[in-house]
Write a protein that binds this DNA or RNA. Structure first.
Lengths: 346, 346
DNA sequence: TTGAAAGCGCTAACAC
DNA sequence: GTGTTAGCGCTTTCAA
């Protein structure tokens, strides 16, 4: 090995990747000019634009968004928090969020808070540390600590899938209380008189079946029997729950309608009903929640509460993009509503 | 408002958040000491540690990981790319990835490449720009461009859910060809002789049914009828496909076994079978793929190919964490295998 | 054990 | 239109 003059004492390691500096030098312009050519091409002359483009192409330069984010205090990073990704209900929302943001040049970080809220604070701290341009909370209960952290950070927050009375910042959701009421009214109108409930133990499901319960009482019906299972809900829990609901059936007071807190539970209930010879909808009507892709094609097709999860995601993304671009947000709370889709199971 | 001395011409906007500087000043130490107190507490005296902790608590300081990542060239960001999050099959993998990384102080960015690979290159470029410490590719076909970009970036890459002959870097998956072969052998051993296939149009499903096809021929059986549907697969496609498969049934050559490329398709096939009075497993055996949560509890319970998606995610995360911590990786390709779970549908 | 200096790669602010 | 300068908030390097 040849001993040459020592290299100038380099005080710092570099990542080794091509930087904007390299591109600028190759194009024969100042770094800031290269930056403008890439970010605001309209501010730059045709000639410079072309030279920079060539330099980018020949070096394979990929801008470092970490550095850009630090310098501009806009990370173009957004966090989406769900209880767990396995829930299926929120998938459409996460999907539309990711897509909408990707199109706008943003990246979505995924956070799973768990249904118990244990990991929530640590997760939020980790998220805030990333200085995202927005946080979308989906189906999350928030601790006082968590709220404080988010508020203090000044990061735009969108809560979704619920209509909380005191939103942290922005909100797009629907009323679970209304859902419970509407389903009760729907079943009552169809002549059903003895209600049962199968629900996951998440707070929004509780909101639904509690108002369902009250509505039943208001109609002068007996109090619905409620079976609660752990979230996330699955077919198995649905099967088990039907059995438990049936155990209580006396001769003349058989349950004739069941409101399930998810379509998966409803699928389970209907599976078990078939096994036990319970006819649907003749003996028992079944209503699900979510209108997942399979609901319309089950046999019998499932009556269920349809939520436009994709629209929720798009609206949430729009909120944050508007805020990022400094657009005024006039309506900070949006009720996206719901629909009962009447199919064969009722 | 009081007119005081003008503030020193501040040449730069600051985000306004508490910085390490603020914490250090409050604790009466240099910023670097505060940094060490937080990152490598063992390098710091008890007294300093306490002072810094107090300062952090009283200011509500949350470290800026963007800045940290830039300075240390370790972003603690990782990207997970899936065709679409709605697929359900990859959910468990994404979930275990997110959890494993979260525990290690990493954040997961979610990317959806689509099944067609159109958005793939743009997505990869966006990801590389974030300088993640690793990329996990799940069920993704990669273009030549994409491969180049990733290789050039030097970012650790883990491909999953497949055993490609020429991995980019690291890999954890299983052989889809073996799956097809194994299912064919399984059905043949149970006396089934006329096979059908219902599959989504993704490349790995194709791998499975093509080897299933070859194996059938090798057993001296007639060529399986194949119905291909768009991915992601749903119950509806399963129902439609059974009808199409049945159309071709002559008097003495009825299909007696169907291999579905997903449990959702199998659910659809079995639903339609019930409607049409086709008995399962007496008339037709059905095999699914994925062993989703509902498979074991359907009626009849579904025989299916079980993949440990959670283990795939954990191993993929481990690969990247090992690489990040400079640990030598001896085995860069891991075959996680699969299992045929024999239930009532066969 | 602690600190000073330098700089990661980029962009806002202010000239020219 | 283009460039100079000065950081964004942190951590590495080197020195004490």
């Amino acid at each position: 090995m040849l001993i040459g003059p020592l290299p100038p004492k380099r005080s710092r390691r570099s990542s080794g990747a091509v930087t904007l500096h390299d591109v600028a030098r190759l194009a024969g312009v100042a770094p800031i000019t290269a930056s403008r050519a890439l970010n605001t091409p309209e501010q730059v002359s045709e000639a410079v634009l072309q030279k920079v483009k060539d330099a980018v192409a020949s070096t394979g330069y990929v801008p470092n968004r970490l550095a850009g984010g630090l310098a501009s205090t806009r990370s173009r990073l957004v966090a989406a928090v769900v209880p767990t990704i396995s829930g299926a209900v929120f998938l459409e929302t996460v999907q539309s969020l990711t897509e909408t943001f990707a199109q706008a040049g943003y990246q979505v970080m995924l956070g799973q808070a768990g249904y118990d809220g244990l990991r929530e604070d640590a997760l939020l701290k980790a998220i805030v540390g990333r200085r995202p341009d927005g946080v979308v909370l989906t189906g999350i209960v928030h601790s006082v600590e968590g709220r404080k952290l988010l508020t203090a950070s000044g990061i735009p927050v969108v809560e979704t899938w619920d209509l909380t009375p005191t939103p942290i910042d922005m909100l797009v959701g629907f009323s679970h209380v209304e859902v419970g009421r509407a389903v009760a009214a729907f079943l009552h109108a169809r002549g059903r008189r003895r209600f049962g409930v199968v629900a996951g133990n998440d707070p929004r499901a509780k909101l639904r079946y509690e108002s369902f319960h009250s509505a039943a009482i208001a109609f002068g019906l007996p109090a619905p029997k409620v079976v609660v299972v752990p979230a996330p809900t699955t077919l198995k829990y649905g099967r088990d729950s039907l059995s438990r609901l049936m155990e209580c059936n006396g001769a003349n007071n058989a349950i004739d309608a069941i409101f399930c807190s998810s379509d998966s539970l409803a699928l389970g209930v209907m599976t078990e009903a078939r096994v036990q010879g319970v006819r649907i909808p003749e003996d028992v009507a079944v209503v699900g929640f979510g209108d997942l892709d399979f609901a319309a094609y089950m046999q019998p097709a499932l009556t269920t509460v349809q939520i436009n999860g994709g629209a929720i995601g798009r609206q949430a993304a729009q909120f944050i993009l508007d805020r990022a671009d400094g657009r005024e947000i006039v309506q900070r709370v949006i009720d996206i509503g719901f629909k009962i889709v009447d199919r064969q199971s009722t």
